[in-house]
Design a protein around this nucleic acid. Structure first.
Lengths: 225, 225, 225, 225
DNA sequence: GATGAATGAGATTTCATTCAT
DNA sequence: TATGAATGAAATCTCATTCAT
């Protein structure tokens, strides 16, 4: 007489921590709720920063419940990752947009329109980018993710600088890094101090980089009339 | 082209920030404990950021107790203010150092040595600056303080740019802002990615700003041999 | 030697335990779903115990939904009751099987075949029995139910022992209790440690009880060749 | 110019989950609180079972706070482990007590006094043993721990049986297992049904095992006068 | 001056159960 | 009959701060 019933192996942890609650396929209503939560989080992160944001704030704004939140995300960080994924997509799109930038006026305009695209993307995702910056401080993993997201843009920009033949004293990679962080933090500063990012500001940024990295000289690129 | 931002008078920040809970005069041992706590906080803030730093982490690293912590600071924020006070001192010192910067090689050197001073100060206070940035996200009051601290530097720099007669398209205030945030974040990025901030990097930063904001042209300032 | 426990009348447990929330008559499909849920619960209870088992685990394994679950059971406890009802049926059948057990070899064989029946029943319902034991810890009501279910077996066994004229020092009721719990837990232990319950094990159990409770002596019942 | 401040490595998780909050050395007051918590837990576990016991119940009974609880234990499981460690100590002590057990009256008395020791230990730690049994269901790890704790007793007992020359049909290891689980569960049952474990009960248990495993015959061991 | 112990408000997370389609 | 979505009460756990010695 032998035992008739094999004991099934315990399938270890069914849902790993930090994973989306369970990537079910969502119907229309589910999609809507998901969106509501993402949007609410965007607002709350913008208002209080990531760390200070409470799940409670988010669900209240989304007019839903705690339980529902954890139906879609396994925790606050998971939600941020979802938002970041959306933002990162656009960041990555930016490096495709960097064209040939010469020291002449055409180059200036090219650069200016790229910066404008950068500006648009930044403003669209401002809360996420801030939350991101906020998390980088406490979670190294998020830092790596951030680095790799910008790496593409920096590389493209560095190539563009190198092709243009930068002024002496410029290291293309360092220059590209400086450019990207300048653009990013300038936007951050202006938004933080509630000053607008207007044409004058974008012109200034463009001119600094055009002259500083792409070798434009004064006579050659009269500012737009 | 109008300056987008009124240049604020530097608001003094000597309002007893960061003083012990009850302002006792400290003997030798007290001084030592105070220093231990400040240093430990510096390390912990650097590791985890301000928000995520726990008082427990700090006192453990300082090899002292919770009770002692509150003997010296009235709360965690108070401790950060003390650290910031130390850093702000140096930040403020920086605007005194900005001299006359012309478009020639002398100007380049002048700028370069200022940037070097900035770099030194930044590296010395990196953890505090990061904690500061961290806090700014969630505490509006701290944001004001931060703005006013940098305002002095920005103002001085903006004046210096205006005096030099910047290239067309440059708004001196926007330019100064862009310059400061670029320097700050470039240091942050390099430290975060564990890349050194070497001479080539500082040369690059200097050249970008010299050409971008102070109208330097190629022929006039050959980079240092 | 007085029985330490009044021998309780077997309280009938046919009080509609484990019936669907609203007692509908089920069609073929309904029957199938019901079975799927019962089977899944059996597995999950075996894996995690009753308390730790989540309805979610059960419906996932049964490949159905939460909503469906509550179509068939009014709650988790209700489901367990349904399973218990199935098991109790067999438990109750066991006391009918206890025959006259003398101290001779015939008695040994009689006892042995009863133990074999016990073993079969136990193995068939192991998960339920475990869940039951699990619940007994936290729900007094379930404890009563459990006691009354085994009471029948214990009573029958005690009578059988008393009739056989047990060795001096044996209280028939205490002896019957000891026998039942020994059989139950021995099976539990062997299954838990993944050791088989083989003929040698059943022989050992039989011999302990035959000699211990029914007065068998060595010379009179040589073990089966 | 190279960065002057090495960034210290993040010392990963400072306190691993599931570990005692931090095995500080406790002063008198700490010891007292620790004891209060352990005792309170014992009571609560006895009343509601481990799973159903809430940390809140424990701290209320111990007249202390949630915060304090987590100062001493990292969670409920951790607390149970502490209690188990205390119980396991005594369980282990039991196998040293098993002496030479012959089929005569001296053997009966020897066995009886060992069973009495078992009984004492069991009663002293009843709540823990129940909680243990409760957890075994949901946490495999706890099962292993339980097995290894009893393994010593079983082995000693099996040796004792083998030395005594058991009746034919007895496998010493299976017999020892059966004996231990019988003793354990008998106590459990009696306590659960609120019946006393009196001399008659212990006599019965002793006699079953003495005859069943150690080959005692009727004439040779008259029960105590 | 210093410290271990205690606190409790508040945040996160889980999961049995109900609802709407 | 079936199901995905939603709920919210209850439980766990954290940590800045206060207290008593």
């Amino acid at each position: 007489m032998t035992p008739s019933q094999p004991i099934p192996e315990q399938t270890s942890t069914d849902t790993a921590a930090g994973e989306p609650a369970s990537r079910r396929t969502l119907r229309a209503q589910g999609q809507k709720t998901l969106r509501k939560l993402l949007d609410a989080a965007m607002v709350v992160f913008a208002r209080r920063g990531y760390q200070a944001a409470r799940v409670d704030d988010i669900v209240k704004l989304a007019r839903t419940s705690h339980g529902t939140f954890y139906l879609y995300f396994s925790n606050k960080e998971d939600l941020l990752r979802a938002l970041i994924a959306e933002a990162a997509e656009e960041v990555r799109a930016l490096d495709g947009l960097i064209g040939e930038i010469g020291p002449d006026e055409a180059g200036w305009k090219e650069l200016r329109s790229w910066i404008e695209a950068f500006s648009d993307a930044w403003l669209r995702h401002a809360p996420v980018l801030k939350a991101w910056a906020d998390l980088v401080m406490s979670d190294a993993g998020f830092g790596e993710q951030a680095l790799s997201a910008v790496a593409g843009v920096i590389t493209s920009l560095a190539r563009s600088i190198a092709r243009a033949g930068p002024p002496p004293g410029i290291d293309p990679v360092a220059g590209a890094e400086a450019a990207v962080v300048m653009l990013e933090r300038f936007h951050f500063l202006r938004q933080f101090s509630r000053e607008p990012i207007d044409d004058a500001a974008l012109d200034t940024l463009t001119t600094i980089l055009h002259r500083g990295l792409f070798g434009a000289e004064i006579s050659r690129h009269p500012p737009r009339p």
